[in-house]
Nucleic acid binder design. Structure first.
Lengths: 228, 228
DNA sequence: CGAGCTTTGTGAACGCGTGCACGAGTGCCT
DNA sequence: AGGCACTCGTGCACGCGTTCACAAAGCTCG
């Protein structure tokens, strides 16, 4: 299991599906399933079977023809490829509504991303406890990142403060950022940024709704009275 | 009317970028800018200029050569295309950590998606007030959806309850679902579903971190991290 | 031990989206 | 009025990702 075996780059599209396979495999293992076919995995994952096989083939040939994939072993291989064999502690910047929710949301820790710290510029928020973690002043970011060996930061501030938050994270030594603020962050080369904009997802749904109904308004202020 | 005849379909990739342009245009308008070039819009949006022009060309030829795009008019055109000329009230299923956060998060309402209602199966959660909205029992979903003319539902339940939540939403008449639960929902044809899995985004970041460091662990049994 | 069924792994074709280059239209300045 | 600088709109080539089809490989059973 020497990591010096040169890894060819895995297509981005495949990387974004591997976590899905991983989750399904974990569920199946907990159900007592020890072998699974690409067909079944595709069904559970909402994709088609050839795509599953091609995706998994980027990891190596870990399946057995005529049988399928050994669940336990495949979990290990995907975890290894994704770097999930150990925890990645994260620091959340911004203890507002969203930051509080993310801290309280157990899903991060369960999947290997424990919330190691929360910071905020607002002194009035410092000291309160969210999801078992005390909010600390943003100035302590460098010490926190260094002492807890944090590589990933989460920006959960309002848009106006997001760039500053990102700058501070980068200065503190973070190399990957998950950005929930609706702006495009400017970061130095080599820093990986992913953006999640909740409103954008709704707007995309709106487009398909609008196309479906031909523009009929569900709560058109012009016609029906939508109080409150 | 036939909704698909008057408009050629816009590529999905373009649809997912239109909200980004829309947000930037709104900001620029608030700053007093009344005309913007594709170059500038691309810079602010983190894409390249030809892509901006191609995206906008799907809406029609609303630019002026030699000048750029009139901000106000372009905002209107994108809003019209995305169906954002009126509000789309949404209902949130699940008043747990995530549901509470989404209800309190003002970003939805600001962007035209007011939280019209929150429901939960847990009777102990019913009655509490989140973000100005009282939590109501899940059985009232059909009445809520009908009376408030809701087309979009948000699933913010644990994974185990997500499929049931989706079924109830569909039965109540919702035609689009934004799913935060980490499972693939099964819905009838014609129902649009978009999925946001917060942990998946972190796992993707983990992959790039892992590739960068060659698999060095940041917390557990780590050698010295690469301090570049 | 071989036939037949099952399932993986992958080369190749196809389609979509991106990036590029350039023609076309507009405003400004002399 | 004419030239020039600027920017949009778009045809085209390229590359990535998806899909398909099929050969290779393993298991089961008689």
């Amino acid at each position: 299991m020497s990591p010096d075996r040169n890894r060819r780059p895995i297509p981005d599209a495949t990387v974004s599906r591997l976590p899905v396979y991983l989750r399904i495999l974990g569920e199946q293992r907990d159900l007592g399933v020890d072998s699974i076919s690409s067909d079944r995995l595709a069904e559970l994952g909402g994709v088609n079977a050839p795509k599953v096989r091609k995706d998994l083939s980027y990891l190596g040939s870990y399946g057995t023809r005529g049988v399928g994939y050994e669940v336990e072993y495949l979990i290990f291989q995907i975890q290894r490829e994704l770097g999930l064999t150990h925890d990645w502690p994260v620091v959340i910047v911004g203890a507002g509504n969203l930051g509080q929710a993310l801290a309280g949301y157990g899903g991060f820790g369960e999947r290997g991303f424990p919330v190691a710290a929360i910071v905020d510029v607002d002194a009035s928020k410092v000291g309160s406890v969210l999801g078992g973690t005390r909010v600390r002043p943003v100035d302590e970011l460098p010490q926190i990142v260094r002492s807890k060996r944090i590589n990933i930061g989460v920006v959960a501030t309002p848009a106006s403060a997001a760039q500053d938050a990102a700058d501070r994270l980068v200065a503190a030594g973070v190399t990957s950022i998950l950005n929930f603020a609706p702006i495009v962050l400017t970061v130095p080369a080599g820093i990986e940024v992913r953006k999640v904009d909740l409103a954008v997802e709704l707007q995309i749904l709106s487009y398909y709704e609008q196309r479906r109904t031909g523009g009929a308004a569900p709560t058109a202020r012009a016609r029906s009275a939508s109080a409150s």
